[in-house]
Nucleic acid binder design. Structure first.
Lengths: 113, 113
DNA sequence: GAGATATATTGACACTTGTCTATATAGATG
DNA sequence: CATCTATATAGACAAGTGTCAATATATCTC
């Protein structure tokens, strides 16, 4: 897992977060950095199983169905939701661990001095 | 403070995260959703006072000075760094509280069911 | 004031992104 | 098989983004 802090505090400026880790973390953070996706996530978070199908979200979100599919695809590719097919419906479910990973990666230690 | 979870779990899909809160949170998350800025933040996080001047970061980051200034501006406008002028130098310092706010906003509760 | 240094701003450019409409695909049901 | 429903994909478009070179601004020092 890539965190902003790596091992511990070195007194010199070094490129502590490697390019590949920075790219990966940025990709996951970008997936949650959109107002529509945040509202979508918020809706899922309020549902008992942390999941919903595309049609319900489309109705509640006020954007077109292809747009909702697009946003779910972005979230799925970032590992933030799981996709479960149930007949004609497709249910997307939040992966709490993925969000916890993000919060850990964003943790900044208390000021040293 | 805007969190993805608002009060508690309602059993119906509602637009729980209001537009203004979603916009604000997205803006702050976007500020950290860039690989270059993540590396920059990582560098600051490893320094004793959580701060550095533009020139040191420019040297270590391998991008142009205007680009570093631009990234610091984005971070400052999102409230993630403070700006402190010291003669010709300008020091930017991480605001740990702002990062903690982000991690709180991204928290997803454990599955209800 | 003149020159040197550190930072910010401007303008340009390629690239990405969010949204839509139109259409395709897949599964259920008659 | 035909049709309906749910979802995904393709294509288009406007808006936003990351970067740089060039230039402006501000501060220090002589």
């Amino acid at each position: 897992m890539s965190t902003i802090m790596s091992a511990c505090c070195e007194p010199t400026i070094t490129n502590v977060l490697h390019q590949a880790d920075a790219d990966d973390l940025a990709r996951r953070l970008k997936a949650v950095s959109d107002p529509t996706r945040l509202k979508l996530i918020s809706m899922l978070a309020h549902l008992p199983g942390l999941e919903a199908c595309v049609c319900d979200i489309t109705e509640a979100l006020g954007v077109s169905q292809p747009t909702v599919s697009h946003h779910f695809k972005v979230l799925a590719e970032a590992g933030l939701v799981d996709r479960r097919k149930d007949g004609t419906w497709v249910h997307y479910r939040l992966r709490p661990q993925a969000f916890e990973d993000l919060t850990i990666a964003l943790s900044i230690p208390a000021p040293v001095a």
